[in-house]
Design a protein around this nucleic acid. Structure first.
Length: 268
DNA sequence: GTTGAGCGTT
């Protein structure tokens, strides 16, 4: 009997959100409620689920009524074995409505605007600055990343494992996290694309590579041959095809121009 | 039937 998340957030004006990570995919709010309720008044427990499968994502949000209780729960439940897995409890950084969160407490935008109080702690932003210093990818919606990751959830892990030692990843996990590889890869890719073409990768779908051909009445009327197909220039009618690789009539300019096979490409 | 970095809904 879990009434958490059934009717949405009941009250998030004076609640402290806690993020519970590393929980099993089968752990429900009911399983976490008795655990967290022991250390304080739990207002609500929410576990995000996948849209397609509807399964848990492996983390939950526990809202406490008081900060001291939440802090206590974080210190007490962080690292606790739940369902055979060690969970990680910490204060939530982002809010449900993308609101600012101060020490786990949700600060409504309306109130912030009214007071126009700029008493913002720069200490919390220092962490973001470090990551966004050269990382502009953050501009994109973080939700998008999540969905992209979810779509290829099964294959993502494979790529990660192959990239690095499959056993080393788990060792470096823990609290320190080890996603620097991802950043490095992303940066590398960004630089490469930027150098080659100013336009970044377009989100063009894999399917229907030529949607324009769909509307071609002329094609349908004469699907036998193309108007340019009879062109002698395009077709090797004289027996010699104008191959694009041959800049010189020799046919093998590479052998003549490159007597030394070494240093073929100056890119690498 | 699986998986394991991360930050949220009626």
């Amino acid at each position: 009997m879990s009434h958490f998340g059934r009717s949405g957030p009941p009250d998030i004006s004076d609640t402290y959100s806690l993020l519970v990570l590393n929980i099993t995919f089968r752990t429900t709010a009911d399983d976490l409620f008795p655990l967290f309720d022991k250390y304080g008044k739990v207002v609500d427990i929410f576990i995000p689920k996948d849209r397609r499968t509807g399964e848990s994502r492996g983390f939950a949000f526990v809202r406490y009524k008081y900060a001291d209780e939440a802090q206590k729960a974080v210190e007490r439940l962080d690292g606790r074995m739940v369902d055979g897995r060690e969970i990680t409890v910490q204060f939530a950084k982002y809010g449900p409505n993308a609101e600012r969160i101060h020490k786990g407490r949700i600060i409504e935008t309306a109130q912030r605007s009214r007071y126009r109080s700029r008493s913002r702690s720069p200490k919390k932003r220092y962490r973001d600055d470090h990551r966004d210093r050269d990382y502009k990818k953050r501009s994109r919606s973080r939700s998008y990343d999540r969905y992209e990751r979810d779509r290829h959830r099964g294959k993502d892990r494979d790529y990660r494992h192959r990239s690095r030692s499959r056993s080393t990843s788990l060792d470096y996990k823990g609290r320190g996290r080890a996603r620097y590889d991802d950043e490095r890869h992303s940066r590398s890719r960004s630089r490469s694309v930027d150098s080659r073409s100013p336009a970044r990768r377009s989100p063009s779908p894999r399917k229907s590579p030529s949607p324009q051909r769909s509307a071609s009445p002329q094609r349908s009327t004469s699907p036998r041959k193309s108007p340019r197909g009879e062109s002698p220039a395009n077709r090797s009618r004289d027996g010699r095809s104008p191959s694009p690789r041959s800049v010189s009539p020799r046919g093998r300019p590479e052998a003549s121009r490159s007597p030394s096979p070494r240093n073929s490409n100056g890119d690498e």
